[in-house]
Design a protein around this nucleic acid. Structure first.
Lengths: 145, 145
DNA sequence: CAAAAATATTTGATATATCAATTAAATGAA
DNA sequence: TTCATTTAATTGATATATCAAATATTTTTG
């Protein structure tokens, strides 16, 4: 008989990221109204790379085009973003962060910084490097076969 | 300025589990028709613990009651499961794996075993222990604050 | 025991995930 | 230059995630 899923390392990986997401979302809710972790991440990425297309944002965030389309639709309706057709390539859109979106971004910085630090308390730099290495091995194994 | 999300360890954790899930789902699709990873996991858990309630299954699989209800509804419609009201506590259901579900379980064993092994190629036992320890620190950090 | 609290599940609303098909625009090759 | 291919985004269908409210059934407690 194979091991129960809950006995495997994949289970722990999944649990870790889900706990972190829940934790991060709870902390977000305390300060910012009506924003999901993923919407926040999208704002951060877009702020750093204003030229990114929806497709590129999706790749960064592990989402397919359809999910990104619907996220951006919603964020536009909520007035965090505006969209304009790209002059160079009219298949694409340019995305702009609105004033309301910018405001959220400034609030986000502290919250996210605190989230990350709190989640990593008691973990050494070396441990994180090791974690990163091992996870990357798994990522490669899953991609090449 | 804070680090981009894609620079953090949380990003790598998320990427690892998503790649593994995609990988596992692809391999599942090769052999078994119309079953998701989560449905497969539910079958495995239920097979090992036939007495578990929907609530308990949800806790094991990081899902809330509503998600479990809908999963089980679907799996019942697809004839992988049957439900009966529990005689002892009529709030609960007893879940039974059908013959069709049992058949899938036997196919699952090999696939899942191979998935797990392939994803962990080149990773030592000691690395996995370390991975497990570090992830559990993150899990605890997120739960206690 | 009766009323209140707790428990297991369901339902509704809304967001996201995934896949397949579609649309519109840009690019490439004959 | 035109037709086929590729690309970016959308849409539809279905499944799942999450939260809040509702339902039905215990359990507790005064």
């Amino acid at each position: 008989m194979i091991e129960l899923p809950s006995q495997t390392i994949f289970y722990t990986i999944e649990k870790a990221i889900k706990e972190y997401r829940r934790f991060a979302q709870r902390n977000l809710n305390k300060t910012i109204d009506k924003i999901t972790i993923d919407q926040a991440l999208l704002l951060i990425f877009l702020n750093k790379h204003p030229e990114f297309s929806q497709k590129e944002l999706g790749e960064l965030m592990f989402k397919d085009n359809a999910s990104v389309t619907r996220m951006i639709e919603l964020m536009t309706k909520r007035d965090y973003l505006e969209r304009f057709v790209d002059k160079e390539d009219r298949k694409k859109y340019n995305l702009n962060i609105t004033a309301k979106g910018k405001k959220i971004l400034t609030d986000l910085n502290n919250i996210i910084l605190t989230n990350r630090e709190s989640a990593l308390i008691g973990i050494t730099k070396q441990e994180i490097t090791q974690l990163n290495n091992t996870l990357n091995k798994i990522i490669n194994n899953c991609n090449t076969k």
